[in-house]
């Protein structure tokens, strides 16, 4: 499972401040802490507070690239910002993200190919958030079709069913889990799957418990990757255990430690 650390994001106060004051140390230690906790890649977002993401995102990318070689997940809804991030990156990259809108796909797919970047495609378009499984599958099919046509390797494509908060769209969560499994039935070769985990508990109490419970269900549905807080130890322990139960790793009494020794 590809674990993408979510903590370098301008919506967090410490990162917003570090970004404003160009304080490398805060950003870099946040990167290293996440890697130490098991992040395989790091999400990089300057968040809504940034007045100039075209400059802020490349700065974050360079600063993080100074301390780790892990892949960076360039997080912005604006293709120009992504393009600036890609230019600045020495690390492998994942574009986060494109929607299923054709005009956006036509910009980001060539960009991903040019920079040999992976790409997250969210099952959403300008008409809004899908309300059921069929709409999600239709949007994913559109992304897969465009990717296939442009010669983008489908195994480098991560499809996101778009997770809704449990206290907003409780009736949709089962659909979302089923979508994770069914995304892989749309095409062959199939794309991979990713979720932004923390969305599930947005605005709720007991966030960590909700996150790890949902993650277990998603992993059992065949999830390949998640954007999450790797510093949540109980969450990581739950993930390692879920993968163990699914026979992804060989059991031993110290399996948690064994996973972290990889």
């Amino acid at each position: 499972m590809l674990i993408i650390g979510e903590l370098i994001n301008g919506m967090y106060a410490n990162i917003a401040l570090a970004l404003k004051e160009r304080d490398k140390k805060v950003i870099q230690s946040c990167a290293l802490e996440q890697v130490a906790c098991g992040a395989d890649a790091l999400d990089i977002s300057c968040g809504p507070a940034s007045k100039n993401p075209l400059i802020d995102l490349p700065w974050l990318v360079e600063v993080v690239g100074e301390v780790t070689d892990k892949p960076l997940c360039l997080d912005s809804s604006k293709p120009q910002v992504i393009a600036e991030g890609l230019k600045a990156a020495k690390n492998p990259t994942i574009i986060n993200s494109t929607t299923a809108d054709i005009e956006k796909l036509q910009i980001l797919l060539p960009l991903a190919k040019q920079y040999k970047s992976k790409l997250i495609g969210i099952a959403i378009d300008s008409k809004g958030i899908p309300q059921n499984k069929d709409q999600r599958l239709e949007l994913a099919a559109r992304i897969l079709e465009q990717a296939g046509q442009s010669g983008f390797a489908l195994e480098d494509l991560y499809l996101d069913p778009i997770v809704m908060p449990v206290n907003v769209a409780q009736n949709q969560i089962r659909d979302i889990l089923e979508t994770i499994a069914e995304f892989k039935m749309i095409s062959s070769p199939h794309g991979k799957t990713v979720i932004g985990l923390s969305n599930i508990s947005q605005g709720a109490k007991n966030r960590s418990l909700i996150n790890r419970t949902f993650l277990t269900m998603a992993v059992a549905s065949g999830l390949d990757s998640a954007i999450l807080d790797p510093k949540d130890k109980e969450l990581m322990d739950t993930l390692i255990t879920a993968e163990l139960i699914l026979n992804k790793n060989i059991y031993c009494d110290s399996y948690l430690e064994a996973y972290r020794k990889r």
């Binding site: 060989i250 059991y251 031993c252 009494d253 110290s254 430690e257 064994a258 020794k261």
Partner: peptide, 13 residues
């Protein structure tokens, strides 16, 4: 026993 083989390697390391 593969589980013990793995565990023993961890204990040793």
């Amino acid at each position: 026993d593969i589980n013990i083989a793995k565990q023993l390697n961890i204990l040793i390391s």
